[in-house]
Every structure is written in structure tokens, then in C-alpha cells.
């Protein structure tokens, strides 16, 4: 049974059509890479999955599916510590607070639990965002450009973290990015978006040759 069944989803901001007739099925245990330039509708699609915008069409979730997310940037309360921020969200989600120390350790922040969020680096914030996305053991995790703004070492670290999480938990993920190299190493399936449409779908194993050329070919020539 699919985790998520998206059928004919469209959305407009004023006169601008941001999503056009999206059809997509998310299966358990797979990682989907959502690729496209800025403004292609990646974040909007993820927000639609969360029910955070007005769209037409149908998005059906599997019964009881919990969806974790890191959308746009990791936003937390600066005056609270990393632990307190996660506890706050765990209370909103009605999930046990006992999983938080383990989560922080899993994302490499176990020894920074009492650090105030305002004093963290971007890399730490991204990690905390991933930790929050994993609260309550979600069946599906949405990660919107999780390495945005990071240096190459930070990008590598986050990529490794996402791989480890997916390997150990088997959680389905949708990871969006405009960086093909990053996504190709993480995802099982690649979805190319342009101007609000999914213009090409392919399995990651079908990717051969120069990745940038492939990206430019698909997104340059796509309809």
C-alpha cells in the first residue's frame, strides 16, 4: 500500500500556476529525490503534502501516517536549548520526551543538548531540523534542501546523516534539492520538476555519465 497517493494536484498563487497536475505515488522504504531549479515548485509540493496550502486535486495518506519535515530552513526558538526545542515539538506531536536524547545523539548533537539554539552553527541547525523531522518515528520524512547554505564538509556530513537515518530506520523520504550530485547519492528515484510539473522520472540506477549534463539536458529541454 502506498504511503502517499498524489493525484492531479495543482496550485496557483494569484495568476501564477505553481503546481500543475502533479501525479505521484510514494511507496514505503524508498527515497525520492525532487530536483529542479529555484521556483520549480519543489517546496510548494512538499507544503501541499503537509496540507499547508490551498491546492486542487487529491493527496491521500496511508491511515495513521505520521509525516516529519524540514521545510525551507530549520526554524527554532533562539532562547531555548536544543533539547528544549525538541521537547516543545514533542509535546505538540504528543510523542514521548524519552526519545529526544537518543535523537540528538543520532544526529550528532548529543553533547550539545543544553546549548541555546541562538548559539548554534548552520550545520547544527540543519541537524536539529532533521532530529525534529524524526520525532515520533514518522513513516515519511520531507527534507527541503537540507544542505542549503552549508560548506562542502557540512554537505557531506548531512548527506551521511541522511543515509544513516534511512538505512537504520528504513524511513521513506522525499528530499528536494537543486544539487543533482547530492540527491543522486541518496535517492532511489529521481523526480525532475520544472515550472510546477514533474517532467521526468527515473530510477537513480539509470543515471550514467556526467550528472550536470543530465540535469541541464532534462531541465533545459523539458516541456
Amino acid at each position: 500500500m502506498s504511503l502517499l497517493d498524489i493525484r492531479d494536484v495543482s496550485m496557483a498563487h494569484g495568476r501564477t500556476r505553481v503546481l500543475r497536475n502533479i501525479d505521484l505515488r510514494i511507496e514505503p522504504g524508498h527515497v525520492y529525490g525532487l530536483l529542479g531549479p529555484n521556483g520549480s515548485g519543489k517546496t510548494t509540493l512538499l507544503k501541499s503534502i503537509l496540507g499547508a496550502n490551498d491546492h486542487t486535486g487529491v493527496i491521500e495518506r496511508a491511515p495513521g501516517l505520521r509525516v516529519g519535515r524540514l521545510i525551507e530552513y530549520p526554524a527554532f526558538y533562539g532562547g531555548l536549548t536544543l533539547r528544549e526545542n525538541l521537547e516543545l515539538h514533542a509535546r505538540y506531536l504528543r510523542t514521548p520526551l524519552g526519545e529526544i536524547p537518543g535523537l540528538l545523539a543520532e544526529v550528532g548533537l548529543g553533547d550539545r543538548a543544553d546549548l541555546r539554539f541562538s548559539r548554534t552553527s548552520l550545520g547544527m541547525r540543519q541537524r536539529l531540523g532533521i532530529a525534529r523531522a524524526l520525532l515520533g518515528e514518522p513513516g515519511l520524512v520531507l527534507l527541503d534542501e537540507p544542505t542549503n547554505g552549508l560548506d562542502p564538509i557540512g554537505i557531506r556530513d548531512i548527506r551521511e546523516l541522511i543515509r544513516a537515518v534511512q538505512r537504520e530506520r528504513g524511513t521513506s523520504m522525499i528530499v528536494s534539492s537543486h544539487n543533482l550530485t547530492e540527491i543522486a547519492s541518496l535517492a532511489d528515484h529521481l523526480l525532475f520538476m520544472k515550472a510546477g510539473r514533474i517532467i521526468r522520472r527515473m530510477a537513480a540506477r539509470e543515471v550514467h555519465g556526467d550528472l550536470e549534463d543530465l540535469y541541464a539536458t532534462i531541465l533545459g529541454d523539458g516541456a
Binding site: 503537509l50 499547508a52 525551507e72 530552513y73 526554524a75 527554532f76 515539538h89 506531536l93
Partner: peptide
């Protein structure tokens, strides 16, 4: 100020 408006209102 914290950029948490979206997270706050979509926490479930």
C-alpha cells in the same frame, strides 16, 4: 522573529 510561524501553525 524566530521564523517559526509556519512550524507553529502546522505542528498538527
Amino acid at each position: 522573529r524566530n521564523g517559526t510561524y509556519f512550524e507553529w501553525l502546522t505542528c498538527g
